[in-house]
Structure formats: C-alpha cells, structure tokens
C-alpha cells in the first residue's frame, strides 16, 4: 500500500512539475482571492487584520477545490484511471498517493498565501508553531476529504459544479478550527488556539481512514 502510494504521489507530482498548473493557475488564483477580499473589506488595516485568518482559510478551501479537480482531471484522459486499476495498484495506495500529492500542492499554495496575508494584511504571528501545526493537520484533512469526493465525482459531466457543493460543507470544520487557531496564533492566545487542534487532528485522521476504507468500493467496476 505504501509503495503504491509513493508511486502514485510521485506520478502526480511529476505531472504537476511538468505542466505547472497549480503553480501558474491555482497560486495566482489564491492570491487574487486575497486581493479581492481586501477590496471587499476596504483598506482599513484593523478590519483586514481581524479578518485575515478567515480569509486565508477560505482561500485555502477554494484552492483545495481547484487542486482536487486538477488531480482527477489528469486521471480522466485516455482511460488513465483504468490503467491504474489494471496495473494492480492497491486502491488505498492510490488514495494515499493522490492525497499526498494534493497536500504537497496545498502546502505550496499556503506558503504563498501566508506570505500574502503578512504582506497585504500586515499580520504578525505571535506563535508561529501553532499556525504551522494547525496548517499541517488542516492540510491533511482537506487533502483526504477532497480526494475522496474528487474520486466520487470524477468522470462526471457535472463535476465542476458538483464538487464544491459536496466538499465545502464537509470541510466547514476545517474552516472554523483553522481560522480560530490562526487568530489565536496571531494574538498569542496559545491555550485556546491549541484546543482547536483537537478538531483538526481527528478530522484529518477520520478522513484519511475513511478514504483508505472507502476508496476501494468507489473504484470497483459495475
């Protein structure tokens, strides 16, 4: 399972390295979202600074949708998904590999977004470690939930409209816990911020586990 996961993740990331879709489309999109939020809230620094964690995580959620869609768009061409199955790769490995690749791309997006809110919204972190831990856990959860639903809607003609409807309510806890943990990291209220990790951690664990179990049935032939 793990070897297959590494193979699939390597394949997805290699395709990304060569096509650079995430780099040249998703990252600019995420930054654009930040700038648009800035326009919507006005130039007042105080308002922007308070809203920054929420805006950051909303931008991450939107990027998750795009990265997931891309992750399954590369599978749909010329029966690639069927090829993966014929190659005898463990479905759980496919899930873990795709989730790892999505997570890696989300980390890249978040690095840029984090710099974005520091530069554009003038945010200073009091507890950087808290923000980092929250990000890592949230990314795992987002990638797992995204890939699970991406597989569900992959190959459907309506996937562009269906995927956000399915994924966004599911990842609402990540938005809540992530932005609360980040505001705590900014203001330095470490104790209350750390308690939000108790939601992000189980969320990631539950969705990774569900993906490992449920990805197999999703891939079966009719």
């Amino acid at each position: 399972m793990w070897r297959d996961a590494v193979l699939v993740a390597g394949k997805d990331l290699r395709i990304e390295l060569r096509s650079r879709v995430a780099l040249w489309q998703v990252v600019p999109f995420a930054v654009l979202v930040l700038v648009l939020f800035g326009f919507a809230l006005g130039p007042g620094r105080a308002a922007l600074r308070t809203a920054a964690p929420g805006l950051y995580w909303l931008a991450v959620l939107f990027s998750t949708i795009l990265v997931t869609q891309r992750s399954f768009a590369i599978e749909s061409g010329e029966g690639t998904r069927d090829g993966l199955r014929l190659a005898g790769i463990d479905p759980a490995g496919v899930f873990l590999g795709k989730a790892a690749a999505v997570a890696a791309q989300l980390v890249a997006v978040q690095v840029v977004l984090g710099a974005g809110i520091v530069i554009l919204f003038d945010v200073r972190f009091d507890a950087v470690w808290l923000a980092l831990v929250a990000s890592v856990l949230a990314t795992l959860g987002l990638a797992a939930a995204g890939v699970l639903y991406g597989a569900l809607s992959s190959g459907l003609r309506v996937r562009e409209t269906l995927l956000p409807l399915l994924v966004l309510p599911i990842v609402a806890p990540v938005l809540i816990a992530g932005s609360r943990a980040w505001s705590a990291a900014i203001t330095g209220a470490v104790a209350s911020g750390a308690s939000w990790l108790k939601i992000l951690g189980p969320f990631a664990a539950v969705y990774v586990a569900m993906g490992v179990v449920l990805y197999g049935p999703l891939q079966e032939t009719a």
Binding site: Y149, P169, I170, R180, I199
Partner: peptide, 27 residues
C-alpha cells in the same frame, strides 16, 4: 456505490461539525 460513500462521509461529518460549531459559538 457513489451515493452510499457520500452518505457515510456526510454522516460521519455531522458530529465533527456539531463539535466544532459548538466550540466556535461558546468561545
């Protein structure tokens, strides 16, 4: 198969959502 997976995922999400919203609101 798709719908069964979606229903299970949604059902598992319910307690997490209600926990997080509960904390969000009380805090």
């Amino acid at each position: 198969r798709r719908c069964a997976v979606a229903a299970i995922v949604a059902f598992v999400d319910v307690p997490i959502v209600s926990f997080s919203v509960d904390w969000w609101q009380t805090l």
